[in-house]
Each structure stands twice: as structure tokens, then as C-alpha cells.
Design a protein around this nucleic acid. Structure first.
Ligand SMILES: NC(=O)c1ccc[n+]([C@@H]2O[C@H](COP(=O)([O-])OP(=O)(O)OC[C@H]3O[C@@H](n4cnc5c(N)ncnc54)[C@H](O)[C@@H]3O)[C@@H](O)[C@H]2O)c1
Ligand SMILES: NC(=O)c1ccc[n+]([C@@H]2O[C@H](COP(=O)([O-])OP(=O)(O)OC[C@H]3O[C@@H](n4cnc5c(N)ncnc54)[C@H](O)[C@@H]3O)[C@@H](O)[C@H]2O)c1
Lengths: 215, 215
DNA sequence: CATTAATAGTGAAATAATTCACAATGTCAT
DNA sequence: ATGACATTGTGAATTATTTCACTATTAATG
């Protein structure tokens, strides 16, 4: 069986979210057309993506939500909850943590880290909080697989190295620097709202230029 | 001249961020190799990306940071600040707004919207705040081009339609639903931390499966 | 039961993006 | 000046991804 292309993996994750949402609403089935419309992607593309899971749908009638969800979970490893941690409990970090979403789905944030000990004592969050120097040992001991970084950019690279030392497998970096993996075994994604704003404005600027040239 | 591929646009945005960072630090030049290393991408790829800007570097000595930054700005439309707004001023929204970053670079958040009027009065942020029903008229009047959505998922599609009615050009959606553009003229990107966690865990799960099969 | 309307699955074709290899050009130290 | 070294730019080759066109299957209807 061929490896699943990354764009396909990314879409499968979004499809999974969508299925969760629709299942909550009580819907039982849906078509590749509906998935495509919701994701802003052609239905061909969706069907092709789903072939990587093996046989999934029923010709003529679409996909059964529960079954499809299980198949994606099976293929992508969502069958058990994964342990995660958060580093940097400032305004962003606590805002994110306050969202129950992170404790109900496929992940459990089971530890927080911050350099500011005072902050740690005054927070009212029911996960254990540790100082930053404990990162390698706690990550290793608790078998934490994922980390979310909501801390100042200057400190991100250094913290990433501590996490990697502890054996972390994936990092979502929210601090405003591009973090790259010093080690091929650790996957990193960078989220940056300003970058997204730039990307969008580049898209509509370029579209306009093209239109101007054509006219 | 051929259209710039989307992956290239995305990388150019990141390169732009990097150049800003290095310029602040006083660095004057850098090579495609250094850019590639920082972004976790091959230097070939970086050089190819930069060819879409026309002649940019100096053979043998690399790229001049200030010049390259200006060329990217020129090509992608970063030559003037763009107006943006934020919808949903709860914990996430205010945490993001508190970051001076959004007022110093290529964007200006000049308006906020929320349904909860009480919240509006108690916030201490020096941008004008409006109730949600004002979205179309304010967006149109102020010529706001970009919006950031930090509100409950159920409300996102409805708010997106109001923004589009006002003539918005791009939306960054932070609420936990996949928002798709009803209209091809409006660009949307969805940011979802849970999805990123899923993507990362899929990557290392699949890698492990492959290794198991090989061994 | 036959007919019609949806819809999945898929190999092949087309398109898009990345990687490669290397010539050409510049820098720098001596 | 010269030689050694570093680095860009790019057409070609490769690889990856998307799109297409069509068949087969099922559901629903009268
Ligand atoms: N990527 C984005 O789109 C985006 C958007 C908004 C904010 N941000 C970034 O998110 C980060 C956090 O923002 P915030 O508003 O919560 O800031 P904040 O100052 O409220 O919080 C930062 C927290 O990090 C802690 N910290 C500092 N150094 C640390 C270290 N070495 N190790 C661990 N913890 C450390 C501080 O004690 C504090 O609790 C900032 O870097 C900000 O620029 C990014
Ligand atoms: N995408 C992600 O990765 C991610 C991460 C964390 C939180 N979130 C989401 O971000 C959103 C905001 O989180 P929060 O912690 O700030 O929640 P919050 O409850 O503190 O804030 C929500 C705000 O939205 C306002 N609001 C409600 N309905 C509205 C409407 N129709 N129009 C305008 N404003 C409206 C509320 O008055 C409130 O001020 C939530 O949907 C949460 O799930 C997303």
C-alpha cells in the first residue's frame, strides 16, 4: 500500500472534525459531495483521499458517518487519547486551556510549564504546573507526545530543545518565530496569525494584479 | 510571467517574517542555505521560490535582507498596511488583541465586534467596538479587508456572511468549524489547534506503521 | 420489478511542485 | 591579480497531487 500524501492526511483530519460535528448533530450519512462542499474541495479529491482507507462508502448512497470516522481513526492513529502539554501560561495559554475542547476529544493536556513561578501559584487550572527546567524529565516520565508552545518567540527554540530531549514527538508552535526541527524525528507546525493575514492579502493582491494585466 | 504557486506564496510569507526578524537584529545578508535551514526546507526550493520575484540575489554572496524584503513586499502587496477587524472578544480575542504585534507590522486592527454589549463596555482596549449587526456597514465604511474570527463555532458561518456582505476580502477563522467560502472572491483560512495535533499525531503514527512493516 | 437518479471507486491523464545538476558569477584572502 | 571557495539562477528531470471520465453499484420510486 502506498504512503498517504500529506495533503491527504491534512484533509482527512478536517474530514474527521466534520464527522464529529455531524455525528453530534445526529446525522448518519453523507456524500463525498457534501464533504467537498463543506471543506471547499472538489468531491473527486475527497473520494480519492478516502481510497487510502480502503473500502469506505456505499455506491449510490454515500458514507456512513460512524463507520467512516472509525476508519479514519484507525488509519491515522486516533484510537487512543494522546498526552499533551502546554508551555507558557500567559494570556494566550490560559485562554486556550480554558476551552474544554482540549480535554474532551483525542487529546489530554496533562501538564503545564512556565518560568514564572508566581504565575503558577495564582492560576486556577486543575492540571499540574511545573517550572521550565523540569520539562525533559516530566515529558519523559509522563510519556507526553505533543506540546503546544504559547510563549515569547525568543525562548521558543530553547524550549523546543528541552521538549525534544524529553522525547516529544510533535510540537505546535504558536510563538511568532518559525521553529524548525533540528531532528527529523520530531514534527513541528507553526501557527502564526500574522502570516495567515499575509498569505490572504498576497492571494487577493496577486489575483488583482492578474485581473489588471488581463484587462 | 507565470502565476506564483500557492506553496511558494506561503513560504514567501514565512521568509518575509524571517527577514523582518533578522533585520531587527541588524543582520544585512543571508544565503538561500540559511533561509532553508531556518524554515526546514531545501535551499533549492528557496532559490526556486525567489525566482518568481525576478532577480534577487547576488551570485556568490547571497541576498541582501533589506532588498529582498522590499521585493517580496512589492510582489505580494505588503507595501501598505491593511485594515483588519476582530469578531468575538472573549478570552481568545482579547488575548490576541493584547499583543502589540498586531498594530506594528503590516496590519492594523481598527475595529472589534461582539454580540455581548456588556462585554464591550468593560473592555479596556483602544479600538472602537461595535455590536455584531453593524458588521456589514462598518466593514464597508472603513474599507476593512481582513477579519479574525474568535467566536463560538455555531455562529461563525453567519458572521462570515455578514463580513462578506460588507465586502471583506479575507477571513482567518479561529473558531472550531471548517468555514468554506460561499463566494470565490473571499479567501478563508481555518486555524485549529486540535486539527494540528491530529495532523502531527497522524504523521508519527504513520511513520511508525511504516517502520513496523519494513522491519 | 423495472426504471431512474445518485453516488462511490479507480486507472489514466493532466497539472503542479520539488529536486537536481551545473554553469556562471561573485567574494575573499593572500 | 589569482586561486579557492561560496552561492545564485535555471532548464530539465523527477516526483507528487489533482482532476477527469467512466463503470458499477445501490437506493428510491411508481
Ligand atoms: N502566532 C500567533 O498568531 C500569535 C498570536 C498572538 C500571540 N502570539 C504569541 O504568543 C505568545 C504568548 O502571548 P501571551 O499574550 O500569552 O503573552 P504573555 O506575556 O501573557 O505570556 C507569556 C508567558 O510565557 C511565560 N514565559 C516566558 N518565558 C518563558 C520560558 N522561557 N519558558 C516558559 N514560559 C515562559 C511567561 O511567564 C508568561 O506566562 C507571545 O509570544 C505572542 O507573541 C502568537
Ligand atoms: N481554533 C482553535 O485552535 C481554538 C483554540 C481555542 C479556542 N478556540 C475557539 O475560539 C472561540 C473563542 O474562545 P474563547 O475562549 O475566547 O471563548 P469566550 O466564550 O471567552 O469568547 C467568545 C466571545 O464571542 C462572543 N460571541 C458569541 N456569539 C457571538 C456572535 N454571534 N457574534 C460575535 N461575537 C459573539 C461572546 O460574547 C464572547 O465575547 C471558541 O469558539 C473556541 O472554541 C479555537
Amino acid at each position: 500500500m502506498p504512503a498517504i500524501p500529506k495533503p491527504t492526511i491534512s484533509r482527512l483530519c478536517k474530514i474527521y472534525s466534520l464527522l464529529e460535528e455531524l455525528e453530534d448533530k445526529g446525522q448518519l450519512k453523507l456524500s463525498s459531495n457534501e464533504i467537498g462542499r463543506r471543506l471547499g474541495v472538489g468531491s473527486h479529491n475527497i473520494r480519492k483521499d478516502l481510497t487510502y482507507l480502503g473500502e469506505t462508502g456505499t455506491t449510490g448512497s454515500g458514507y456512513e458517518i460512524k463507520k467512516l470516522k472509525d476508519q479514519i481513526a484507525e488509519s491515522l492513529g486516533f484510537t487512543r487519547k494522546r498526552k499533551a502539554c502546554i508551555v507558557g501560561l500567559g494570556k494566550m495559554g490560559t485562554a486556550i486551556l480554558s476551552n474544554e475542547m482540549f480535554f474532551s476529544k483525542n487529546f489530554d493536556i496533562i501538564a503545564g510549564f512556565d518560568t514564572n513561578i508566581n504565575r503558577l501559584e495564582t492560576l486556577k487550572i486543575d492540571i499540574p504546573l511545573y517550572p521550565t527546567y523540569d520539562i525533559p524529565v516530566v515529558v519523559k516520565r509522563e510519556k507526553i507526545e505533543l506540546a503546544l508552545l504559547t510563549l515569547p518567540g525568543e525562548t521558543a527554540q530553547n524550549i523546543a530543545e528541552k521538549l525534544i530531549e524529553g522525547g516529544i514527538k510533535g510540537i505546535v508552535n504558536f510563538s511568532p518565530v518559525v521553529l524548525s526541527s533540528p531532528d527529523d524525528k520530531v514534527y513541528i507546525t507553526n501557527i502564526d496569525i500574522i502570516d495567515e493575514f499575509r498569505f490572504l492579502s498576497a492571494l487577493f493582491t496577486l489575483e488583482k494584479k492578474e485581473a489588471d494585466n488581463a484587462g
